[in-house]
Design a protein around this nucleic acid. Sequence first.
RNA 1: GGAGCCGUGGUGUAGUGGUCAAACAUGUCUGCCUGUCACGCAGAAGAUCGCGGGUUCGAAUCCCGUCGGUUCCGCCA
Length: 435
Amino acid sequence: MERIRTTEVAAHVGERVQVAGWLNTLRRLGGITFLVIRDGWGTVQSVAQDESDLAPLKEADAGVESVLTVEGTVASSPQAPGGFELQNITVNIITPVTEPPPLTLSKREIKAAQPTLLDHAVIGNRHITRQAMLRLGAGIMMGFRRTLNARGFTEIQTPKIVESATESGANVFKLDYFGKPAYLAQSPQFYKQIMVGVFERVYEVGPVFRAEPHDTTRHINEYVSLDVEFGFIQNHFTVMALLRDIIAGIVSTLEETCSSELKLLEVRMPFVPAEIPHIHFTDAQELIFTQHKVDVRGEPDLSPQDEHWLGEWAQEKFGSDFLFVTGYPMRKRPFYTYPDPDRPEYSNSFDLVFRGTELVTGGQRLHLYNDYLRALEKAHLPVEPFTTYLEAFRYGMPPHGGFAIGLERFLMQLTGLPSVKLTTMFPRDINRLSP
RNA sequence: GGAGCCGUGGUGUAGUGGUCAAACAUGUCUGCCUGUCACGCAGAAGAUCGCGGGUUCGAAUCCCGUCGGUUCCGCCA
């Protein structure tokens, strides 16, 4: 008999079907027993009316998490969870599990504390809520790709082993490349810009590595960056408009393809306005001063607290979960950032704040070769390590810009999880390299 | 790099100087139970309270050290 997924039983009422998966829950009520089977897509209940139906379990001493098949007749039943169940079942044990797992997966929620859950992520990720959350991550990537493919973007994969420690800022992981020093890429920034010279519109879904010794709920040392870069833009507002469409595309893709996951996790979906409100960096600082009596004017960057306040303000004033902060000071932005033509100490860059946390950084980049030479000099950086990168600009690049969305942060803010470490299968943080 | 907090059965917690040879929930095991869905009921097993030292008549509890975890800041997505 051909196997069907647990999520497909509704289409087979009255038929004899087989499901396969893991024994999620075994509820023995005496004369009747409920077996909840979990597969890669969800769960379904099956009912054993007769004690003899359970003989294979007893013989194999098989407990929860045993791998098995259940053959049964699909019945529509209002008292079954989800409305459907398998009756008159035949159980076949494939892989018996005889010891209890380190985490309890059969309850609605995982009770384990974060370190315990992460230590046993191999098992913990099987829990239906973890499974659903991780699938939302896949849904975000799908929505991202779908939106960009529809707009003529080409997906690229740039090197993750790089020769020089690219831009300024974040620390890099050094490695030994056949005796030569090399680094794990902390961003695809240079390569994606270079590829604008080839495809005009590019995007990448890939890992980036940050050797920052930070220890917060918003940071991990390897994360998935959703990168976009494209040419022939007017300024950073062109970039922000595309980002708005991508966010909207991700949200609608999730609603379309992950509705059961969103429901299970009780996700509050954001409303994406036709135009996401924006505020200039200096105005944001003034706002914080007038509203919260904290003077951050003159600070070169916004603190997590500032972003939190701005997020609240956007919600109150515009009913928006999103807010663009534009025009960050040039001195806090990397050398390739395009300055505001009217106020050169500020930049044509932006951050997107989602529910009070920084989610995206982006902006317009320099595109003229001579501007790069000047910018490097101003930043006291040598030209030599950037020769390959600069070659792109030497031989013609259009005005361009882009951004990077942090996948895990998006998931954290979307689902309301307390840490990015819980949005990824196997997080890498300052003191976790395993599992 | 700086600061704070926390380590108690498999898991999550309570206990902050004696009444603790450690409590509760959940899981596990045994028995009962024919519609559960966090099933229910009865019973059982399971912890030298992270580790080392000190204070004290007496330490899970106070102090010092150490190891582990976690949160915040800086920085960033």
